[in-house]
């Protein structure tokens, strides 16, 4: 399969990119690493009259720390995070997550921002970012705004970006040395999308407690507040409680799906509370 013809632009600045996006009137798409968009264009499952390649926007490729939060530019690649470029402030969690995204060839080009905007319900970064309490930095025709992960993640293959807007960076708090995390992904083989993903983070210093599960059957990532409350209280989390929490969120999980999601969550919670 080959993509239909499109116009290719490579702006040199964010303003230029936003102007091109506005000029596209909804028919222009941002091209980051192209690891999802290009196959979809080739399969003719997605269409674009214009592709705006953001590979030239240096600002979007940077990792910087300010005011206790770390800003990761939207076009930072999975490979850069796997390699710990910019330093590890999450006790190894980002390195761990990045290392198991697809294959190195994909990670060399695929970007964190592209993954978050593409919003594949089985993708890793949406789950991991929600578990770390990340916020999304957005630029658009009306200026800049910021959304937390829960508000950014709308639905399957759908995020909160409005027409003409683009993601410029994610901002996330660093974890204290005492923080514990667990990331459990069940997949058919190395490099495959997760069939079930569970991420649990507990930072006793900052008070951050997150329990996030995501997958296609779950329709993407979401927090499990009831389980977070148990962890915060130091109360044991029973398998039945995990299953109730999953069933409340998605009543249509079949027995297999319930089993793998509950197992990933239980193992992640156990690892963090150990």
């Amino acid at each position: 399969m080959k993509a239909p013809a499109f116009t290719f632009l490579r702006p040199a600045s964010l303003d230029e990119a936003l102007a091109a996006l506005a000029a596209g009137e909804g028919e222009a798409r941002i091209l980051a690493g192209g690891q999802s968009l290009l196959p979809m264009l080739n399969l003719r499952m997605a269409a674009a009259e214009t592709l705006i390649d953001i590979g030239g926007l240096t600002e979007l490729g940077e990792i910087a720390e300010a005011d206790g939060r770390v800003r990761i530019g939207a076009r930072v690649t999975h490979a850069a995070l796997e390699d710990g470029v910019g330093g590890d402030r999450w006790n190894g969690m980002l390195v761990f997550v990045a290392r198991d995204i697809a294959y190195r060839a994909v990670r060399n080009r695929g970007t964190i921002g592209g993954s978050l905007c593409h919003a594949d319900p089985a993708a890793d970064w949406p789950v991991a970012m929600m578990a770390l309490g990340a916020t999304m930095q957005i630029a658009g025709p009306d200026g800049r705004r910021e959304l937390d992960s829960e508000a950014f993640s709308l639905d399957v293959f759908s995020c909160a970006l409005e027409e003409g807007e683009m993601l410029t960076a994610v901002s996330l708090p660093r974890l204290s040395p005492a923080a514990r995390w667990s990331y459990r992904k069940m997949r058919k083989k190395a490099g495959a999308f997760g069939e079930a993903i569970a991420a649990v983070v507990h930072d006793p210093e900052s008070g951050l407690v997150r329990v996030v599960a995501g997958s296609s059957p779950l329709g993407g990532p979401a927090r499990h507040a009831d389980l977070e409350a148990s962890i915060a209280a130091g109360a044991p989390v029973e398998d039945a409680a995990i299953r109730r929490s999953l069933a409340a969120r998605e009543p249509d999980l079949d027995r297999y799906e319930m089993q793998i999601h509950a197992t990933c969550l239980r193992r992640a919670i156990t690892e963090v509370m150990r």
């Binding site: 294959y103 083989k189 190395a190 490099g191 495959a192």
Partner: peptide, 13 residues
């Protein structure tokens, strides 16, 4: 219909 759904064993498997 794509290698996303059709799993071929790779070196890791």
């Amino acid at each position: 219909t794509t290698f996303g759904d059709y799993s071929v064993p790779a070196a890791s498997e």
